[in-house]
Every structure is written in structure tokens, then in C-alpha cells.
């Protein structure tokens, strides 16, 4: 069954017809060719597919595309403006908060959501809030550091 969708992705209006069972992550990757959103587990546990839906971090493998109808979605491709990294992206680079880069888009978007809810998060809070995002490369230490630095930069 095909359904029609109308939503905003990275500030651009998108209208599409999709199979009703299409997951949001597959819609983003396959229909929109925004391949920065990754699939690491397809069971909702690794967080590599995290995007912002109306500003909130959502694992895009856990909802259907149709559930995002009318929403405003930000993927990793939509963060940098005019080639300038978002403060959280810049902090990840500065703190070496990424290695292979596969979990990184989800980490960065989760981090932005985290900082929105906990602008002054300490290390324990950051670690607890990262429960839903797996990284196998960094040991998390520099991700935690990056999020604290990115939070400070976002506070201005």
C-alpha cells in the first residue's frame, strides 16, 4: 500500500509516495539519498540512525516514514550551514570524538538533543544520556569530552 508524505527535511519541503511499511531511516537513505544516516543494528539499539524529528532525537529505524508526516526533520547533512560546522560537529572534530565515523551522525544528533535538555550536563549525565548510542571505536571518552565542549559552545 502506497501512502503520500509531506514533510520538511533539512529545511526543504519533501513530498513523496512510499510503501506504507517504509521505515523513516530507509526513506531518508533510499528515497532522499541522504546516506549520512546509518543503520548499525536494525533493532533500535545502536543509535546510528538517530535524526531530529521536530527537534527531538529519534531513532529513524524505530518509526515508519508515514509517522513523520508533517514533521520537520534534521539529518546530519542539515547541521552545517554554508560549509561551517555546527558547534557540536566542531567539538567532535576538536576532541577527536570520532574514529570510523559510522556512529558519528547519530552521536552528534543525540548530543544536540541531550544539550537541549541538559545545557549544563556533567560527565555522569552525558554518559547516562548516551545509553542509546553505541560506539565501538572511541571508548566514549572523547565523545563525552566533545559533548561537554559542544554544549559550552552552544550556550555561547
Amino acid at each position: 500500500m502506497s501512502v503520500s508524505l509531506s514533510l520538511t527535511v533539512n529545511d526543504e519541503a519533501v513530498n513523496a509516495q512510499v510503501d506504507a511499511r517504509t521505515l523513516l531511516v530507509d526513506f531518508i537513505r533510499n528515497n532522499l539519498a541522504l546516506t549520512g544516516t546509518h543503520v548499525g543494528c536494525d533493532t533500535g539499539q545502536c543509535g546510528a540512525c538517530t535524526v531530529l524529528v521536530d527537534g527531538n532525537a529519534v531513532k529513524a529505524c524505530t518509526i515508519l516514514a508515514v509517522q513523520a508526516n508533517g514533521s520537520k526533520i534534521t539529518t546530519i547533512e542539515g547541521l552545517a550551514k554554508n560549509g561551517e560546522l555546527h558547534p557540536m560537529q566542531a567539538a567532535f572534530k576538536d576532541c577527536h570524538g570520532l574514529q570510523c565515523g559510522f556512529c558519528t551522525p547519530g552521536m552528534v544528533l543525540s548530543a544536540i538533543d541531550l544539550v537541549q535538555r541538559h545545557p549544563d550536563a556533567d560527565e555522569a549525565t552525558i554518559r547516562a544520556e548516551l545509553e542509546g548510542n553505541l560506539c565501538r571505536c572511541t571508548g566514549y571518552q572523547n565523545i563525552v569530552k566533545a559533548i561537554a565542549q559542544g554544549a559550552a559552545a552552544m550556550r555561547g
Partner: peptide, 10 residues
């Protein structure tokens, strides 16, 4: 390599 990974261009 970080720019491409951080912007979804990997």
C-alpha cells in the same frame, strides 16, 4: 577525514 564523517558525506 573528520569533515566528511561529521557532515554525512562519508
Amino acid at each position: 577525514e573528520d569533515y566528511r564523517f561529521l557532515t554525512g558525506c562519508g
